[in-house]
Design a binder for these strands. Structure first.
Lengths: 138, 138
DNA sequence: CGATAATACGATTATTTTAGTCGCATTTTA
DNA sequence: TAAAATGCGACTAAAATAATCGTATTATCG
């Protein structure tokens, strides 16, 4: 509950790892070995991050992944959205406007939850990969 | 992902309902009918909230539930903790101190995530049932 | 050119968590 | 003493998450 999925958790660790390698390419194998993360599982997340423009990949023999931009420009929010799609505290806060729930008129949850959601999102938007590796101040 | 469970969602709605009934007892049946929530499922949550001191119950025929204290003294955080037990963004932020994960020395996730967790918790601690029914300001 | 080391990607399976149900016991009141 | 309620444990169902498998494609190096 209110837990980050392994997909996101692994991805953040991997991004830190890649970030620390700096200019060289990091291979999925190398990352999964170092961090003891299932290779196939990690690979798919890296591929997703690539498609979303967070990572760049190089195919073939000396290939691998590198950050598409500076780690202080990559927020956790982006990583979450990339890997999970948009999500909300309650279903109705991320439903498209046309699929309204049938209790919409009387529901006392949607608006206040949307507010809380925004506050939480803003925490994730403010936190970058670079910050995580350094200290995060409270 | 980062979604409130139905248990918590229903419980919050139920607490709002009970709060609006004021001094009278609200029965689980009444609540589940009004809010269209599965009766048995809701009942268990209400019983848990009772054991945790958020609700008071009266057994027998004219029985039911009422708030154990004013709705502005009941935070969402309490409801979440009551129903889910403590939870964290990543496993290690809620593991007991003795069951440390084997990557503890090199892990770059635990401390920063604990910080984010605290920020999120503080949002939930600041939000009461009374506030939800009124407006929640951003 | 061909072997090898890498990513790309869809399909499938396994595991865990969440949601919901059932049955029966107990309590209280009218 | 019947009826209306909560209390509680065991069970089942469904959904989400995590992990695996198989195979195709791409690029480099010798």
């Amino acid at each position: 509950m209110l837990r980050l999925s392994k997909k996101v958790e692994y991805a953040i660790l991997a991004l830190q790892f890649i970030s620390n390698k700096d200019d060289k390419f990091a291979t999925a194998k190398e990352i999964s070995d170092s961090l003891e993360i299932p290779f196939e599982f990690l690979s798919k997340s890296l591929q997703t991050l690539m498609k979303k423009g967070i990572l760049e990949s190089q195919l073939g023999v000396r290939g691998g992944y590198q950050l598409a931009r500076s780690p202080n420009k990559i927020t956790i929010q982006e990583v979450i959205v990339a890997l999970e799609g948009r999500s909300g505290l309650v279903d109705c806060t991320y439903k498209k406007s046309n699929e309204t729930c049938d209790k919409i008129e009387t529901c006392l949850l949607k608006n206040p939850m949307a507010v809380l959601q925004n506050r939480i999102n803003s925490i994730f938007k403010q936190t970058t990969i670079a910050q995580l590796s350094g200290e995060v101040k409270n």
